[in-house]
Design a protein around this nucleic acid. Structure first.
Length: 274
DNA sequence: AATGCCTTACGCTTAAGCGA
DNA sequence: TCGCTTAAGCGTAAGGCATT
């Protein structure tokens, strides 16, 4: 049978189960599944797999019984469903943390918790970036330099996590950036990215009051566009980000760490009816 | 009005049935 | 045994109704 703990998305897990059952038993079908579980709709499983239907807590039980999951697996399955179907990012993050705490998950994804922290806390990225400036740095000085204030203990903990993730390394008695690619990781850990963005937007808002005007640039434009120009707009944003990274890469006298955020979202919602 | 859950309908493939 | 017909079963799409 398929090992559920290899999955962080219950729909993908169900898809794998479907494939496995189908391969091993030609009589298995979406219809058979519905019949066994007491659904009158023959394609319910397919709709769920395709993400077109969510499942209720009652259905969770039907599924786990059909799949013959033991208590531990059923609990994990239930968490995956709740995580996947969570309405808000706060809910999502809560279920993500429960999944990360699950002992079997932990064994299979030892860095899951580390990735989650890296994604969710704004200063992890800042700490890593500050190490690229040409200064002698220890947790104490890093803590003193970061605004808003981050405690020495938090910096130390961040450094330990970054070391485990291979994002920094120790060299000549100081920490330097390691060019380990940040893999997108699993869906659960990366759900924390939403929290990261919220944190950063919050810092951006506060910077209006706390940071002198000459050290920041807060600006925006409001425009109207047709749908066909949205991909073009995204390209422009992407290119701009790339240019900024290039500028930083060529800078020989890095002194401070800056955050540059770009937001684009609709202020109106009108469907194209032409 | 939109969403979510479920049923009904459609068109295709496969397998069973049957006469020659 | 062969070849055709037909029914059953499949995946997918659309429809419908209650709830929000």
């Amino acid at each position: 049978m398929i090992d559920i703990f290899k999955y962080t998305n219950y729909r993908e897990y169900l898809k794998a189960c479907y494939g496995f059952l189908k391969e091993n038993n030609s009589a298995f079908s979406y219809r058979y599944f519905s019949m066994k579980c007491g659904y009158k709709s023959p394609n319910f499983l397919k709709l769920v797999i395709d993400g077109k239907r969510n499942i209720s807590s009652q259905s969770i039980e039907k599924f786990t019984i059909f799949l013959k999951l033991n208590k531990n697996e059923a609990k994990y399955f239930s968490l995956l469903v709740e995580f996947n179907q969570a309405k808000s990012s706060a809910q999502k993050s809560q279920f993500a943390q429960e999944i990360l705490k699950h002992s079997t998950f932990k064994r299979l994804h030892p860095l899951g918790q580390d990735y989650f922290e890296y994604y969710s806390k704004w200063y992890f990225v800042a700490v890593r970036e500050i190490l690229a400036t040409k200064q002698k740095l220890d947790p104490k000085t890093i803590s003193a330099q970061l605004t808003p204030k981050v405690s020495e203990a938090e910096v130390e903990s961040a450094i330990e996590t970054l070391l485990r993730l291979g994002l920094i390394k120790k060299q000549d008695n100081r920490y330097v950036q390691a060019h380990q690619l940040v893999t997108t990781g699993d869906e659960v850990s990366s759900s924390a990215v939403a929290q990261y963005h919220k944190n950063m937007l919050d810092l951006a808002a506060k910077s209006i009051d706390n940071i002198p005007r000459e050290l920041r640039d807060i600006s925006s434009v409001t425009v109207s566009l047709g749908e066909e120009n949205i991909p073009r707009l995204k390209e422009l944003i992407q290119k701009f980000r790339k240019d900024v990274l290039e500028l930083s890469a060529q800078d020989q006298k890095k002194l401070n760490v800056y955050q540059l955020g770009i937001q684009m979202f609709p202020l109106s919602q009108c469907k194209d009816e032409s």
